[in-house]
Every structure is written in C-alpha cells, then in structure tokens.
Design a protein around this nucleic acid. Structure first.
Length: 570
RNA sequence: GGCGCGGUAGCUCAGUUGGUUAGAGCGAUCGACUCAUAAUCGAUAGGUCGGGAGUUCAAGUCUCCCUCACGCCA
C-alpha cells in the first residue's frame, strides 16, 4: 500500500465551469483517486475554489453582493455540482480560508527572510470612479497608432502594437466606463524567481517521464527571452490575503493583498489543514512535510495546459525558495483543451455545455465516460453531439448496459433470480479468464500511468469480452440440450457483472453502484486473480434484475441539445 | 512577427528508440445469432500518414522549406 496525494487545479470562483474545464483537471484527478483507492492505497484527494482577484470582485459587484458573500455562495454552488459529478474530493476547500491566509503570509515572510523578495515601485493607472487600480486589460481607448477604438491598455488587438495605458486616446475603464483615470505610484513585492532559475531547470530536466506538454511549456518559460522573470506577488485590491510578513505587518504594504496566483497554489497545502480542521483527517503534515512523514507520499497534480507555468515554475519556486521540507510535486499530468463543435468552449460567451446544464440533461456517468474516454491528452480534442450520442449509446447502453440486461433476464426466465450452479468451468472459461487477465493487466498499467484514453479503451475491451463469451458459447442454445452447462455459463456471466462493477467504478461510479446493488453484494475488492473473482457470487446467491443501466440518447434529443447549446448562455 | 503543440481511414483518435502488407473504436456494407436496451458477435471495404525536397539499405517516425489549424508571448 502506498500513499498518494492528488490535487486538481482549483477552479476560479466566478461562475460555473464548462465541460472543457472539467475534463482538464477535476475529472481525471477523480478517476485517478478512485482507482488508487480501489487498489487499496491511501489517498488524499484535494480541490478548492480559487476566490481572490479582480474578476471575483467584479462578478460580486455585478451580482450586487459583498464579495465575501458572493464567494461563499458560489463555493457552495460549485461544491454541489462537484457532488453531482461524483468528484470524490476528501475536502473541497477555499483559497480564502483562514488557513490559507496564515500559510500564505508565512510563506511570504520566509521568502523575504531567504532574500527572495524585492520591493518594486511602479506606476499604475488608478480610476477615481472605480476607486481602484486598473489592470491593463481593464483599460481601453483609441489606439494612437491605427485609430482602433477598442485597444487595450497592454496592446492594440487591431494593429498588435504594444502599448502603455497612458498611450491610449480617450482611455477609459472597462468596468465603469469612467475616464477620470490618473497614474499613481505604487509599491509591490516581487518573487525573485530568476534566482531559482537553474534549480528549477535542473528539476524540470530530471522529470523524464512527465508529459511532453508539461515539460515543453515549462522549458519555454525558462528559456524564453531573458529567461524566467521575477514575478509580482502583490496587488492593490481589497479582496485577498493581506500582505503580511508572517504574523507581522509589512511596512509600506498596508492595504495591499497577495496576487491570486501566489496564494492559489498554497491553498493545496492549506486545504489539507482545512481537511483536518473539518474533522475529516488527523495529520495534514504527514502529507505535506517530508520531515514529518510525507517522504513516502507520491504527489500527482492534474491541470489544463494554461495552468502549467504556475505549477512547474511559480509554485515550485515558492516551495524551493522557503527551503523547509515541503513536499514537491512528483508528477504533473496536464491536458490540452476540449473544443466544442469546431470552436472553443467559452465561459464569457456561454458557448458549449456547462457543468450544471450537463447534469440536467443526463446522469453524470454519461459525461464522465465520454469525457474521460476522449480526454485531450495528446492534443486538443473535439466534442460533437453526434460523436457523444454514438459513443455513449454504443459503449454504455449496448456494450455494458445490455450485457447486464441480457444475462440477468436470461437467468430469471430460465432459472431464477439466484445464481445457478451447473457444471464446473471448462476450456472456454479458462480462455475467458486468460483474456480477462491480459486485459486487466493492461488496464492497470494505463491507469497507473494516468493514460486516461487508453485505460478507457481497455476497460471497454473488458466489457466486450463478456459479450464475446456469451455469443461464442450461447447459453440460450445450450439450455435446450444441456441446461447444466448453460447454468454454469450464466453463473460466469453474473459474476462478470460484479467484476465489471469493480473495474468500472473509477469511470462510472453510479452505474458501478447499481450493478453491485443488483448483484446484492458489497464485495468491491479489486481482483488479484480473475478465476477467483468469477467465483465471488456462489451458486444460490440471490440477485435483482436491475432497470436498464443506461437509456439511449435519441436523435431528437441530440438535435435539440445541439441547437440549444450552439447559442449563448444568458 | 517569435515560439509551442498539432495536421494519420467519412468521424474521434493510437502509432514506442526510423524496419516486414500503417492500427483501434464509431459509422458503412455483408453475414451469424435471437438471451438482451432493433441489443450482440464475426467479416469486408475505406488512408500516396497536410504539400515538397533531403538523409538512409529503409521515414508517418530524422533534417530543411512551404501550408493550414490551435495556443502562448512580444
């Protein structure tokens, strides 16, 4: 038994995530966590909401609520949807927690102590009407170069000329439209990542087994231009973690908060503290401190490609910089994007399917199966309604669901709702066991390596073996002349249902539970020996014929949904 | 403009360090079966591996140029 720490990139608080976000981090992380638990390992699976920053403040203002209230509400909404998708977090925390406040401030203080923080004085645009400093992207005006009237403070999207906010003609705030902008001098803290550049490069270089996507992005940031740049870790905002040096005030930094990208990954650690404080665990340090038991922990992170730089460079720079025996990540599994019907999913334009909407259409297993079996591992992947309908119907309804249906109903009509005994297993069953053993080994190998698509294909292959077995041995024919042999074949088939429930649980937990319930067993132990696994349900064991596990998605539904989600979400 | 990941059967995708007739699933066609959610199982068809040049006994796999799509950066 090994110990596995698993984190999913933490979703931003402002709104409900779409299916592309889901398949890029939370869902594969859940798959991995469920699988490792099934294999008997000790798992701590953490996720949280990322709550700080300007977008949260603006979303709260738009909703007419205090930002703290807004975040609390949205956290509950996201937690509920996560439950709907059966995401099995051991704790779903909040980056705004007191634990994260304290830890973030402690990290910053320690970094200063290690001489890895420097103070920078810079000019920024302040909006009197908005009462806040404006990030460059929240300032628009007319481009002095081409006359484009929606040029942003950092560059003109029309002529691509690089700009300073002060270059813009008729500059205004995109938040309020206010034009009473002025330049003010402000002071910020910078993390001296450049000091750690070589250490980070050596570390990345040593990770030979990481996905190419992960290492190529990291190396690019390390070598691009002048190399890794120092990064501002504070902002002039109200909502966030106040800048402090540990528990002490930080002279000159009053009224400022840490930048969201500094505190968000620290929440991975704080979340473990929240987990303990919530009474769910007892010793968070044994997961996070290599001097307190975490040296035997394997830590795997899941994230979309947009988050890779922060997880390969910024956060490790913090961890390495404080030099205090904190656990570093062992494996970073990153994902490309899922596209929607030839374009991008878009949160801002409401294009594609969002998590809450998906659950209104179909049970979570449909989405889990399809998304995971098409996870964008090697390149961007494509969601189309035609493909979704065809794959879900074929894999879930026809191959798996119908297998359960045909064997249980056949048993009920020819024998009873109890496992029949019949003769001993023979050559055909030996072959089945051999084939299952081969495929199981491959399945485990892919799951261990977080090769999500390949694991899904292997699991499907395991389901198909059941249908092949029935088709080749035809108990419905054998029953006419040799009912004892048919009985044995049905006994094998019923045991296959239980086996499939166990193996499928990481992908489709609800269907798995339904299969175990129908077989009236709680034995969900991972098989070490297939022959033994096919004898778990003994002759005479009573079962239920379940309702169809997966109904089919109709053409009418597909057309209606494709139409409904092509437009924009209000 | 620079950089990065890609462009493989109608569709979604695999293709290890270059090496026998380029693979899978879906879809299509044909056949078998009839227990089952008009489900299942088998077979067949379908690709000059984005285009061009080069290295090599041998290239989807390496090099260069071009092109298209996506992303990141300035």
């Amino acid at each position: 038994m090994a110990r596995h720490l698993i984190t999913s990139a933490i979703p931003y608080i402002n709104g409900i995530k779409h299916l592309g976000n889901l398949v890029g981090s939370q869902l594969p992380a859940d798959l991995f966590a469920r699988y490792l638990r099934s294999r008997g390992h000790e798992v701590l699976f953490l996720c949280a909401t990322d709550e700080h920053g300007t977008p949260a403040e603006l979303a709260a203002a738009k909703a007419g609520k205090p930002v703290a209230d807004y975040c609390a509400e949205m956290h509950d909404v996201q937690a509920e949807i996560a439950k709907g998708f059966r995401l099995s977090f051991d704790h779903f925390g909040r980056s705004s927690s007191q634990q994260n406040h304290a830890l973030t401030q402690a990290f910053a203080g320690r970094l200063a102590e290690m001489n890895l923080i420097r103070e920078v004085t810079e000019d920024q645009v302040y909006s009197l009407t908005d009462g806040r400093f404006l990030p460059d992207r929240y300032i628009e005006g007319t481009c002095p170069n081409c006359g484009f009237d929606s040029a942003r403070g950092d560059q003109c999207d029309n002529c691509t000329k690089q700009l300073d906010p002060t270059d813009l003609i008729n500059a205004h705030s995109t938040i309020s439209g206010a034009t009473d902008l002025e330049v003010r001098t402000t002071k910020h803290l910078y993390l001296r990542q450049s000091e750690l550049k070589d250490t980070l490069a050596d570390w990345i270089e040593s990770k030979k087994d990481w996905p190419i996507l992960t290492t190529s992005i990291a190396k690019k940031w390390l070598t691009d231009g002048d190399g890794l740049r120092d990064r501002g870790i504070t902002r002039d905002l109200d909502w966030g973690i106040p800048v402090k040096n540990g528990a002490e005030n930080w002279p000159g930094m009053e009224g400022k908060v840490f930048y969201v990208w500094f505190d968000a990954p620290i929440e991975y650690i704080a979340c473990a503290q929240e987990w303990v404080d919530a009474g769910k665990g007892t010793d968070w340090e044994s997961w996070w401190r290599t001097d307190k038991g975490a040296d035997n922990v394997t830590y795997t992170q899941f994230m979309g490609k947009d988050n890779v730089p922060f997880h390969t460079l910024s956060f490790p720079a913090t961890i390495m910089g404080v030099d205090q025996d904190w656990k570093l990540v062992d494996y970073i599994k990153s994902f490309n994007y899922l596209n929607y019907d030839g374009g991008q999913f878009s949160t801002s334009r409401g294009r594609g399917i969002f998590m809450d909407q998906a659950l209104e259409l179909l049970p979570s297993d449909y989405w889990r199966w399809w998304l995971l079996s098409h996870a964008p591992e090697s390149s961007d992947a494509e969601f189309t309604w035609e493909q979704f309908q065809a794959d879900a119907n074929k894999d879930l309804s026809d191959v798996l669901g119908n297998f359960v249906s045909r064997i249980t109903k056949f048993c009920r009509s020819k024998f009873s709702e109890a496992v029949p005994e019949g003769v001993a297993m023979g050559a055909a069953e030996d072959q089945l066991i051999a084939d299952l053993t081969t495929r199981l080994k491959a399945y485990e190998g892919y799951m261990d390596a977080t090769e999500v698509r390949k694991a899904a294909a292997e699991l499907r292959g395991i389901w198909v073996l059941g249908n092949e077995y029935l088709q080749a041995n035809a108990p419905w024919t054998a029953f006419k002349t040799d009912p004892e042999t048919a009985a044995m074949q049905v006994r094998v088939g019923l045991n296959l249902i239980r086996l499939y429930a166990v193996l499928s649980e990481p992908f489709i937990p609800d269907a798995s539970a339904a299969m175990l319930a129908a077989m009236k067993t709680e034995d969900a132990s991972w098989p070490t020996d297939i022959a033994a696994a096919l004898n778990v349900l003994p002759a005479g064991h009573v079962f239920d014929v379940p309702d169809n596990l997966f109904r089919k998605i109709t053409d009418d539904e597909r057309e209606e949904w494709a139409e409904r989600f092509a437009g924009t979400r209000d």
